[in-house]
């Protein structure tokens, strides 16, 4: 389906953010449509993790609007944000499982926090989601007994246990061997197709990005270089984008004045 036929799940308009006195995002505009996988791509320091933090409503921007599922999150109070978060799942880079709880208890945690479902229902829901991520039967293990890839998958099971409309992945492939990373890519595609989820993946892994993306947004030093399909990004004549794709230093990259300014700023 063409993106123009769909409703936006996320709309970011003129987003400006600061860390201390330093401006990190310089007026970012991004639209993510319902049911698509949007990859936010960029090198380290590009601002992609910062953008994710603002999409999750974890920080307040200097200016601009962020609309999530039709609600401007820059204007929501804590209760309203809490309500909206029920529709948002996040798989953080390190997994962020609680080490004192079993895998099954970790996955059930959002259900305990946000619902009054019967214990039995919660247990079955958690087990179903562990099956979805191929961790069926691992619910009684402690996180310390899992491999890195299993921890990531358990974190995904927890993030999807409430059937969120929107799912965010922060560097899903980081630290995983290629086979496990590919499994995770497959899982992301299945979640889009079976649950019609809108999915945002922040990554610097090109191979994974090209495999799963419906569209890609390329961030560079706090600016959006482009948003487009895989083909459009690949065909881009922009030197910074090509540099990112080919992983070589760009000739215009050494913005000497800016670099000197950074090193010497008081």
């Amino acid at each position: 389906m063409a993106t123009s036929d769909r409703n936006p799940a996320i709309e970011v308009r003129d987003l400006v953010t600061h860390y201390g006195n330093t401006e990190i995002l310089h007026g970012v505009n991004v639209t993510v449509y319902e049911g698509e996988i949007m990859i936010i791509m960029g090198g380290s320091g590009s601002g992609k993790s910062t953008l994710l933090r603002y999409l999750l409503g974890l920080s307040i921007p200097t200016s601009g609007n962020i609309s999530i599922l039709g609600k401007d999150i820059t204007k929501l109070d804590a209760m309203e944000m809490q309500e909206l978060r029920k529709n948002m799942g996040v798989a953080f880079q390190g997994g962020a499982l609680l080490s004192s709880m079993t895998v099954g208890e970790n996955v059930q945690l959002p259900l305990f926090e946000h619902t009054r479902l019967d214990r039995k229902t919660m247990q079955i829901m958690a087990r179903m989601k562990l099956e979805v991520v191929n961790l069926g039967g691992f619910e009684d293990l402690m996180p310390a007994q899992l491999s890195g890839g299993m921890i990531k998958r358990a974190a995904v099971a927890r993030a999807i246990v409430m059937d969120p409309k929107l799912m965010f992945f922060d560097e899903p492939s980081a630290g995983l061997d290629p086979v496990v990373a590919a499994e995770l890519d497959e899982l992301i595609l299945r979640l889009r197709d079976a649950m019609q989820m809108t999915i945002v993946v922040v990554t610097h892994e090109l191979q994974s990005a090209f495999k799963i993306a419906d569209r890609i947004t390329v961030l560079d030093r706090g600016n959006i270089l482009m948003s487009g399909t895989v083909e459009e990004v690949r065909a881009s004549g922009n030197e910074r984008i090509q540099s990112l794709l080919n992983r070589r230093p760009s000739t215009e990259e050494l913005a000497a004045d800016e670099y000197l300014e950074r090193l010497t700023r008081i």
Partner: peptide, 11 residues
């Protein structure tokens, strides 16, 4: 139908 509904069917 969400997974709480499916869980009820499983039970």
């Amino acid at each position: 139908i969400d997974s709480s509904g499916v869980a009820s069917l499983v039970e």
